[in-house]
């Protein structure tokens, strides 16, 4: 079965019935979600409508450049979304996330399309674009989860990090435990039991420490900034230790 299905407009419209179910539920249970549901439905409709036209143009061109352009747009949007989920902005975080998402998604996309599927021609948009969408979407969720967890751990474990720094550990080593937690959070399969999530979330929460981390630790979180433009809290020393 290799043919492409042609979905009739009435079938697409039928998808609205599912939203109507939620709409009625919200109304009956007085959840107050009707307005946001309506807005989300209209937005999704318009987005998919526009994306459909763009994809049709890309498919028609049969050239690698627009396909790669579409993938690049996906990575940019994913970067923006992942970074915007962070509670605290850090200098250089957008560039860092963009590099990480490009490298991670790019390598995975090449591996899947070339080695696993063997797409020919290599840029065939029918395969490359949906697969890229799935890979970039997962990478975005992983990056956002890792970033959120790292910041939560950092906020919760300031005394521990400061103690390690005071004992002469370079900042990357003082932050190693936090990094492990962040990576674990990003790599836990999405279908993990709810109880695990609750435990993990409880572990990641905690009281807010008013005092910012030492400069060395902040510098290690990401790239240092010039002393004239300190990040939230305080400036980075730029030593990156």
């Amino acid at each position: 079965m290799t043919e492409v299905l042609d979905i009739a407009p009435w079938r697409l419209a039928a998808a609205l019935l599912l939203i109507a179910v939620v709409f009625v539920l919200s109304f009956r249970e007085r959840l107050g979600l009707e307005r946001s549901l309506l807005m989300a439905t209209v937005r999704t409709f318009l987005q998919l409508f526009l994306v459909g036209y763009v994809l049709r143009a890309i498919f028609a061109l049969e050239h690698w450049a627009p396909v790669l352009g579409a993938v690049a747009v996906m990575v940019l949007v994913a970067t923006h979304t992942a970074v915007s989920r962070l509670k605290r902005r850090v200098a250089g975080i957008t560039a860092f996330a963009a590099i990480a998402l490009t490298a991670g998604s790019g390598l995975t996309l090449v591996f899947v399309t070339e080695v696993v599927i063997g797409v020919r021609p290599w840029f065939d948009p029918q395969y490359v674009i949906p697969i890229a969408g799935m890979i970039v979407g997962n990478a975005m969720n992983g990056a956002a989860l890792a970033g959120e967890r790292f910041q939560a751990e950092l906020k919760n474990r300031v005394p521990e990090v400061e103690t390690l720094l005071a004992l002469g550990f370079p900042a990357p080593e003082a932050l190693a435990g936090l990094r492990q937690e962040a990576i674990r959070a990003a790599l836990i399969p999405r279908g993990r039991p709810v109880s695990d999530r609750c435990d993990a979330d409880a572990h990641g929460g905690g009281r807010v420490h008013e005092r910012p981390l030492p400069r060395a630790a902040r510098a290690a979180v990401l790239h240092p900034r010039p002393p004239t433009a300190p990040p939230p809290g305080r400036g980075l020393s730029g030593r990156g230790r």
């Binding site: 400061e162 720094l165 005071a166 030492p214 400069r215 060395a216 002393p227 305080r234 400036g235 020393s237």
Partner: peptide, 9 residues
């Protein structure tokens, strides 16, 4: 104190 051991500059 934090200035004296370079937790801050």
């Amino acid at each position: 104190l934090r200035l004296l051991n370079r937790f801050e500059d």
